[in-house]
């Protein structure tokens, strides 16, 4: 690990201010960034820890009935507090292991946008709204606009995620197939049935990161059953991640299997 300055602001305003410095980097729970730094694959002047900002921790319900999860909420805390959205609580409760869940945060996960992370599937599958604060103030970004490819989001330089607002669906489930070494999803599907339609978000599979499987959404919106999914062709494998742990074709196949299982679990 290279040397760096660590600042620990206790308010969002102070954090945003600290992040204006040259080569400053926000630090959530550090579950990705710290191993990267230990391996000397990342070097920065200043780390701005978001772990001491109480105003971005916890879960509340807004006047539209949305569950609003603070960006600094750990996976473990979210799992406990999201009893109003069991599928999302289950997603949070199955990330990594207890040590990861005790430190890692929803904001850190979404901002990092690892193509195999769980939260992006939950956010995109729920049609969540991401609240980001930067030097220009606060803005709301729809999940459909937020994820822009592997490790790429709509966040501007210096912006931090303060809150994620989840509409609560009628039914939902998250089914993941584990990569055996890392235990990240090899492929996972988040399926949510709302009164006005079904959303299906897939993580782990695509070279472009988390995505909505629109063919499945259409099929499920008229017939919310596993059969509606198994009757579809698997998505094209050519754009899928292909590595030691599975070819693009295998991942494409798993997209269909995991989606069907999520539908069954949600039904």
């Amino acid at each position: 690990m290279y040397n760096f300055e660590l600042v620990k602001p206790s308010s969002v305003a102070d954090a945003v201010s600290a992040l204006q410095g040259e080569d400053a980097q926000a630090l959530g729970g550090g579950q990705t960034l710290l191993p990267t730094m230990k391996a000397r694959l990342a070097q920065m002047e200043t780390l701005v820890s978001l772990s001491h900002i109480d105003e971005i921790k916890g879960v509340c319900t807004d006047d539209q009935g949305r569950l609003c999860v603070g960006g600094g909420t750990t996976h473990a805390a979210a799992a406990e507090a999201l009893s109003g959205y069991p599928a999302l609580a289950s997603l949070a409760a199955r990330i990594g292991d207890p040590a990861v869940r005790a430190r890692g945060t929803i904001g850190g996960s979404l901002a990092n946008d690892d193509p195999s992370a769980c939260w992006p599937a939950g956010a995109l599958g729920s049609g969540a709204t991401i609240v980001a604060v930067g030097s220009g103030g606060s803005r709301e970004i729809a999940a459909d606009d937020f994820f822009q490819g592997m490790f790429t989001t709509a966040l501007d330089e210096g912006e931090i995620i303060t809150e994620v607002k989840f509409p609560v669906p009628e039914k939902a489930a998250y089914e993941k197939f584990l990569q055996p070494a890392s235990r990240f999803p090899l492929v996972a599907a988040f399926v949510a049935k709302f009164s006005d339609g079904v959303r299906v978000a897939i993580t782990g599979a695509s070279q472009d990161g988390v995505f909505r499987w629109t063919e499945a959404e259409q099929a499920l919106s008229s017939n919310f059953s596993a059969d509606a999914v198994t009757g579809l062709a698997a998505p094209d494998g050519s754009g899928m991640i292909s590595d030691l742990h599975g070819s693009g074709d295998y991942r494409a196949h798993l997209v269909r299997v995991m989606t069907a299982r999520a539908v069954t679990a949600a039904s």
């Binding site: 991640i241 292909s242 590595d243 030691l244 742990h245 599975g246 070819s247 693009g248 074709d249 295998y250 196949h253």
Partner: peptide, 12 residues
């Protein structure tokens, strides 16, 4: 899975 389906198992 590939053995059951005569498909390509892993990439590269």
């Amino acid at each position: 899975w590939a053995a059951m389906n005569g498909a390509n198992a892993t990439g590269g």
